[in-house]
Each structure stands twice: as C-alpha cells, then as structure tokens.
C-alpha cells in the first residue's frame, strides 16, 4: 500500500533520515518509536506526501482519491469556527458523502455535546478529539497521527483509542507517533524504531528487548529501559 525505498532526507546540510525502507500494508498498525530528533515527524511527513525525500522513493498505491488522513502535532483546526462548521468544511472539501460514518465518529468520540461550541473555547483534550475527527472525516485508507494524544486526559484518550482500534479492525491502516506507552500497549502496533535518522528495527511489543537494540543511542536505550520496566 505504502512503500518507502531507501529514503534519505537532508535539510540545511543535515541528514534527518538515512536509508529508510519499509512497506505498510492495508490494516497495519505501526508506531514510529524513538527519541526526540530521531526523524519520526520527518518520516511521517514523507509518508503523507508533504515532504519529498532527497533520494529514494515513496510509492503509494491506493483506491480512494484522498487516501491519506494526516493529524499533525499542532491542533490544526480553525479556532474561530464551531465544531460543526469545522467538520462540515472538511467534509465538503473532501467530498465525504457518508454522514453515517461522521455521525458514528461523533458518537464514539463524544463530540455530540460540543458541536455548537467554538473550538477556541474547548479544553485541550476536546480540541485533540476534534483534531482527530477532522483528520478522519473522509475515511482515509491510511491515517497518519503525529503525537495526536499529547495533553489528552485518560477518558478522552480511551475514547480516541477505542475509535482508532475499531477503524483498524475494519481495515484502516494507522501509522502514529507517540511517546505515550499506554497508547502503544493499547493499539499493539508494529514498532518501527528510529534513532538518529536510521530505522533500526521493526518489531512487535512482545519481541522488543533492550538487547536487540544495542546499536541505538543512549537516549533510545534509556527510553527502552524506562518503558520495558513498566
């Protein structure tokens, strides 16, 4: 579905990604895991088609016209609008006709009571939910989430995770970045472990061990130590 072939990315003479290859199939759930500056956000932007690799290839094979849903790290929503207008705008823009899906998403994410509220007046967690809903509004084949769970309380996080899990089980491909180990455990993804722009390993949670990543940086080792002890 989405293939990366020996992707390199350089900016201002600095190598941010080096020789990253991998294939993502329909229904996969993948997390890009690694310390800050590992190149996760850059890689997800390349997957979304927002950045072009300096060398290498990104090949996307999809059926739909708009196969990608991108939820950026920022809360990328227009603050002056009420939630309903926000969703309507993206619905119209992406020509999403299935209001059934939208209604279901609103229910699942618990947005029904805030549809008439202006986004700027919502709590951080609610804004994150709306941010996710906007990225999902056109039922993308691949959903790319860049730290979409930051600042979300437990209840809101589990609403979001339950919805994502359901979509994943229905065949939606999900690629996400998070530092939240709860999210990783809940979605049980394949971990693409990135460190200093290199893709060190692709593994699942059960197979993940500190010993298998001895070539990682000190930051990565520490991250793994902390998370595996949980």
């Amino acid at each position: 579905m989405l293939t990366l072939k020996e992707v390199d990315y350089r900016k201002n003479r600095k190598t941010l990604l080096s020789n990253v290859s991998g294939t993502i199939e329909q229904g996969d759930c993948i997390t890009l895991f690694g310390p800050n500056g590992a190149g996760k956000s850059t890689l997800i932007k390349i997957m979304a088609g927002l950045s072009r690799p300096t060398s290498g290839q990104r090949i996307l094979e999809a059926k739909a016209k708009n196969p990608i849903g991108y939820v950026p790290q920022q809360i990328a929503i227009m603050e002056g609008l009420i939630v309903r207008d926000q969703l309507t705008y993206y619905q119209k823009l992406t020509k999403q006709k299935s209001s059934e899906f939208v209604d279901e998403m609103i229910q699942y994410l618990g947005l029904q009571n805030i549809l008439g509220k202006r986004v700027e007046r919502l709590s951080g967690g609610m804004k994150r939910k709306v941010n996710l809903a906007v990225g999902l509004i056109h039922q993308p084949e691949i959903l790319l989430l860049d730290e979409a769970f930051v600042g979300v309380d437990l209840a809101a996080k589990y609403d979001m995770l339950a919805w994502l899990k359901r979509l994943n089980s229905q065949g939606m491909t999900i690629v996400f970045i998070t530092h939240d180990w709860d999210v990783v455990h809940h979605l049980d993804p394949i971990l693409w472990i990135l460190d200093e722009g290199r893709l060190l390993a692709k593994t699942d949670l059960l197979s993940l061990s500190r010993q298998s990543l001895t070539n990682g940086s000190r930051s990565l080792q520490k991250m793994l130590d902390v998370n595996l002890q949980r």
């Binding site: 088609g49 708009n66 990608i68 849903g69 990328a76 992406t94």
Partner: peptide
Amino acid sequence: KWKELEIFNRLNAIS
C-alpha cells in the same frame, strides 16, 4: 496563523 497551525499541511495531505 493557519500555516503555523499546519492547517495547510493537513489540507495538502488530503488534496
């Protein structure tokens, strides 16, 4: 401001 909030990035990813 829309650019800073990555709204354009989100839209570029869609269409």
